[in-house]
């Protein structure tokens, strides 16, 4: 048996068992959005999460980020509580909107993690803002303001800000959902490159079957009404050496058809 004091280093990135997530009203009443989640995500894994509206995809990410307490079951992040992981700043979040502070330059936005959490967080940030900006393809734009950037560039800044925290787990909630398809494809490739380079565990919520298959090592399909896990599909057979799935290969087409059928089934009440 391993010593418990070292369990944190060996523990999976995410481990959930019988987990229920949702919202608790002020009177203490709970409304469950997604129930009975059993999931283990290994370190360095890229898991995509696919599901119809209202299935609780975002709610699950928010529980991992300690934005919502679990309603039932167990959830451990890097071997401890979600709160402990947040306080060590090992979890970073990229929202659908870039959520940049419009009154600050791009560089100051990336450096936001330096200015907040000073009392709580002791773990150092990684590298400097300019290095991360150049990794996401924005070198030289540090002095610009967010409203001078395109939607895709703003989302890159949000990713640079998240990576600046040097997270072990990166949570992404439909980060490219509002972008045009060409920009989205390019950012998908860049995200895969960043993932291979940093070894960060990524949980990536999306509406797009193509995106889920292209990026993920596994894809978790959720169903709605009530929110539940339908199936976790292993995508390893589709992957090339870069971690991508071919968009045209017959195997990919077959997996996508399977996922589409699952989604159609999961969108109606069970």
């Amino acid at each position: 048996m391993t010593q418990t004091s070292h369990a944190g280093d060996e523990a999976p990135a995410i481990h959930a068992d019988g987990l229920a997530v949702g919202y608790r009203g002020e009177d203490g009443s709970a409304s469950t959005v997604l129930a009975d989640v059993a999931l283990t995500v290994g370190r360095g894994e890229f898991l995509t999460i696919l599901g119809p509206s209202g299935c609780g995809k975002s709610t699950l990410l928010r529980a991992v980020a300690d934005l919502l307490p679990p309603l039932a079951g167990s959830l451990s992040v890097l071997g401890g509580s979600a709160e402990a992981a947040r306080l060590r700043r090992e979890v970073a979040f990229v929202f659908q909107e870039a959520t940049l502070l419009p009154w600050q330059t791009v560089r100051r936005n990336v450096e936001l993690p330096l200015r907040v959490g000073r009392g709580a967080v002791t773990r150092p940030v990684e590298g400097d803002a300019d290095a991360w900006l150049s990794l996401v393809g924005l070198s030289g734009l540090g002095e610009r303001y967010p409203d001078q950037l395109s939607g895709g560039q703003r989302q890159r800044v949000a990713i640079a800000r998240a990576l600046f925290c040097n997270p072990s787990v990166l949570l992404m909630d439909e980060p490219f959902g509002a972008l045009d398809e060409i920009t989205r494809d390019r950012l998908n490739d860049e995200l895969l490159a960043i993932w291979r380079r940093t070894g960060t565990t990524i949980l990536f919520v999306t509406h797009s079957i193509m995106e889920a298959v292209y990026l993920g090592g596994r894809v978790m399909v959720l169903a709605a009404h009530p929110g539940r896990v339908q199936e976790i599909v292993d995508l390893a057979p589709l992957k090339d050496s870069e971690g991508r799935s071919s968009r045209e290969a017959p195997e990919t087409i077959a997996v996508m058809a399977h996922l589409r059928a699952l989604l159609a089934k999961g969108a109606v009440a069970a």
């Binding site: 980020a65 300690d66 934005l67 947040r86 700043r89 979890v91 979040f93 936001l112 907040v116």
Partner: peptide, 22 residues
């Protein structure tokens, strides 16, 4: 916005930091 408040929470910002920086 609620996104901005959540961003601050994920970064473990204190109430004073949220006041000053947001």
């Amino acid at each position: 916005s609620s996104n901005e408040m959540e961003l601050m929470h994920v970064l473990s910002a204190s109430r004073r930091e949220v006041l000053v920086h947001l």
